[in-house]
Design a binder for these strands. Structure first.
Length: 390
RNA sequence: GGAGGGGUUCCCGAGCGGCCAAAGGGAGCAGACUGUAAAUCUGCCGGCGAAGCCUACGGAGGUUCGAAUCCUCCCCCCUCCA
């Protein structure tokens, strides 16, 4: 076995391409297909989150078998550990983690928000104090792109400032200026042609700023446009209003990615507003915390009411977990803190999300998205209300 | 038979005159989780209620304004010696 050299070389690889297949007649939902060097992504798509080069508790083969076509990695986390040079030398992130399918890497912009106490911002970039060992780790728009090029992801994200809610108009405007200048620098720093680069639309909850952000980014020119800075504590209605006031102005011929969102209801509602891509830790994290999504609403599997419930978690679900195990067994595993609880719960939740997106795509294709959406939402809320009265 | 150490709210376990319905764990119950510092976090956890009252620290008495805490006897448990 020879030394691994340029395995993530671009030679012979198809570059990024988005094809818009269909627009829904009742809503702004879109059906599309993204082509990347590592395969295709049907949209609207949900991308399971694999921050540290793994979708927690699942093997890549399992993730794939559930129907996921693309997963996320995180630039900040992989930069700190194990380091992008190491990953590049081992053949790139795809090979390193044994996921030969599309990967999108988030930039670290979310860590500017979530690790707010551990970083300092400047025009030049961000200085993180490593959450692992406290050491100082600098990231600039240029180094952020260089790291993602080393990782070899199919879709790279611009370094942005993810602003918390609430933020004043002035603060959001100041922040947007920085994010826009960083986007320009990211675009200029990009050296590969096989990897796509998405811009991130910020602007808080202010439609005028969001519009300005879209225009600025479109002028620079990106392979896709992401809506960032949402689901950071704002009321749900504000999130919807912001998406609704932003998505339609993004370029038609590129994917629209709503970052960090959300619940199943959020996904279906935002598809209706024209969103093509989603990611969220909710299915994986909540699975680990015993909160399962079903076609009849949420199930807190630790609840005493499932103690001797021999029914499957979701009788409309075809996943491995629902085909083989009772609620009573899943509850037992969870309360006993068994590793298998996490695995089975994650299998179900990821399957639920990915299947939901497949159903959404089928509905759009069959001109039935609107009715599918209404039925899905009614079913969920009805059962959830029943559940809370117990 | 002798010497010593213990019995505390579901469990373990702190408290050793008032600030004690009693620390801290665990178990149990419920809630949260949205570009992952998360197999994490939060709340409740004797009864009824607004203050407050009642029942509680092995049992029965006693001392004291006041006892889970001090004294007496009794019942159990553990260790060591015979």
């Amino acid at each position: 076995m020879g030394k691994v050299g340029t395995l993530n070389s671009e030679i012979g690889k198809k570059s990024f391409h988005f094809e818009l297949l269909k627009r829904d007649s009742d809503t702004r939902a879109r059906l599309g297909i993204i082509t990347t060097p590592h395969g295709r992504i049907e949209t609207p798509a949900f991308m399971p989150v694999g921050t540290q080069g793994t979708v927690k508790s699942l093997t890549p083969e399992r993730v794939r078998s559930l129907g996921a076509q693309v997963i996320l990695g995180n630039t900040y986390h992989l930069y700190l550990r194990p380091g992008h040079d190491l990953i590049r030398n081992l053949g790139g992130l795809h090979r390193f983690m044994n996921w030969p399918h599309p990967i999108l890497t988030d930039s670290g912009g979310f860590q500017i928000y979530s690790l707010g106490a551990l970083r300092k911002l400047s025009e030049e970039g961000v200085a993180f104090q490593s959450h692992i060992d406290g050491s100082s780790r600098i990231m600039t728009p240029e180094s952020c792109v260089a790291i993602q090029e080393a990782l070899g992801s199919d879709i790279m994200m611009c370094l942005d400032e993810c602003l918390p809610y609430p933020a004043s108009f002035g603060e959001a405007e100041r922040s947007l200026g920085l994010t826009t200048r960083w986007a320009q620098r990211c675009r200029q720093a990009k050296t590969t042609t096989s990897q796509a680069l998405f811009g991130i639309v910020q602007g808080g909850i202010y439609p005028s700023l969001r519009r300005r952000a879209v225009d600025s980014l479109a002028e620079i020119g990106f392979d896709g446009y992401a809506l960032g800075g949402l689901s950071v504590g704002e009321p749900k209605e504000l999130m919807y209003e912001t998406v609704d006031a932003t998505a339609p102005y993004c370029p038609e011929d590129t994917p629209r990615y709503l970052m960090g969102v959300g619940t199943p209801e959020d996904l279906i509602n935002c598809v209706a507003m024209g969103i093509d891509m989603f990611d969220c830790v909710m299915p994986t994290r909540n699975a680990r915390n015993g909160m399962l999504f079903t076609n009849k609403g949420k199930v807190a599997i630790k609840n005493a009411r499932y103690r001797d419930d021999k029914a499957p978690l979701d009788d409309q679900c075809g996943c491995y977990t629902c085909q083989h195990y009772s609620r009573a067994y899943l509850r037992h595993l969870y309360l006993a803190r068994e590793i298998l609880a996490i695995v089975l719960n994650t299998i179900h939740n990821v399957s639920f999300y990915v299947t939901l997106m497949a159903n959404i795509r089928n509905a759009i294709e069959g001109n039935a998205f609107h009715s599918f959406r209404v039925a899905f939402l009614e079913n969920m809320t009805q059962h959830n209300e029943e559940g809370t009265t117990c």
